[in-house]
Design a protein around this nucleic acid. Structure first.
Length: 258
DNA sequence: CAGACGTGGTA
DNA sequence: TTACCAAGTCT
């Protein structure tokens, strides 16, 4: 569950060291839930999207309170936890509990779009067609389904990759691939819009939060805002949103902490 | 359903 | 150097 949270939109290579330290420090949901959420945000380091740390901490608390400290195996129960969406619930049910679940991440979606759909990429948002298609591939036996889930995801991550040319020479189903058979037609769907970052509120929030993550004591407001000199108004607004999100808190002296 | 939400690696 | 994007979730 911890790894799945960390892997949401974050490459595995960057997750590994943080995950190792996290699991050693907090081996159980109860261990994590017993510490302040700010410690989770700090331990999250530079993985990005720090609200995931906040949600993981909240999920741990919910597991202690509602599931006797045990990570649930049922998808609906998993979905009731903060930060656990369609993908993560299926992944935990499948990988951790060997349940039959539709694990449809960006890798599997791409594999099926090519293998079955004959297109270079899946649509921007997950469609009914994709779920139906994926369901048809999923074996009935739970253990076989769980194996299919890891295998299809890994195939997408290592072989049927998003960037550059796929490594079809190492693909076990290359001969069955509709996209390959069609001669690798270019993606003709809507432009995949580049995500901007420089100068955004996201970058600003990250800069402010980094100050608090690296500090071992509460920091005066002015000192936090000084981490974003380019636009004082933006910094002020970003800090307000961080406070609003609960990622940053005000101590009794008026200083800021995680 | 589009847009917000971090960060860093690769081509 | 810019552009893309990486095991998504929430609003």
């Amino acid at each position: 569950m911890v790894s799945e949270f960390m892997l949401q939109q974050t490459p595995a290579a960057r997750v590994t060291p943080v995950w190792l330290a996290w699991i050693e420090r907090w081996p159980t949901p109860a261990a994590l839930a017993s510490e302040p959420v700010g410690e989770a945000v700090r331990a999250w380091g530079r993985l990005g999207y720090p609200r995931r740390a906040q949600r993981l901490h909240a999920a741990a608390s919910a597991i202690v309170q509602r599931f006797a400290g045990q990570v649930p195996a049922d998808e609906a129960d998993l979905r009731s936890l903060p930060g656990v969406g369609e993908y993560t619930a299926a992944a935990i049910a499948s990988f951790a509990h060997a349940r039959r679940a539709l694990v449809l991440d960006t890798n599997v979606r791409r594999v099926l779009a090519r293998l079955d759909g004959g297109e270079a990429f899946p649509p921007a948002s997950i469609s009914k067609t994709e779920r139906t298609r994926a369901e048809a591939w999923l074996p009935d036996d739970p253990h076989a389904a769980a194996l299919w889930a890891v295998a299809s995801m890994e195939l997408g991550a290592q072989v049927c990759i998003a960037t550059g040319r796929p490594v079809c020479g190492r693909c076990p189903v290359a001969d069955d691939c509709a996209w390959r058979a069609a001669g690798y037609p270019e993606w003709d769907g809507p432009e995949r819009k580049a995500q901007t970052y420089a100068g955004t509120d996201r970058q600003c929030r990250g800069a402010l939060l980094a100050v608090l993550r690296d500090a071992d004591a509460p920091v005066p407001r002015a000192k936090v805002l000084a981490a974003w000199r380019t636009d004082a108004e933006q910094a002020s607004r970003a800090l307000a949103s961080l406070l609003d999100d609960g990622l940053v808190r005000l101590d009794c002296a008026g200083d800021l902490t995680l």
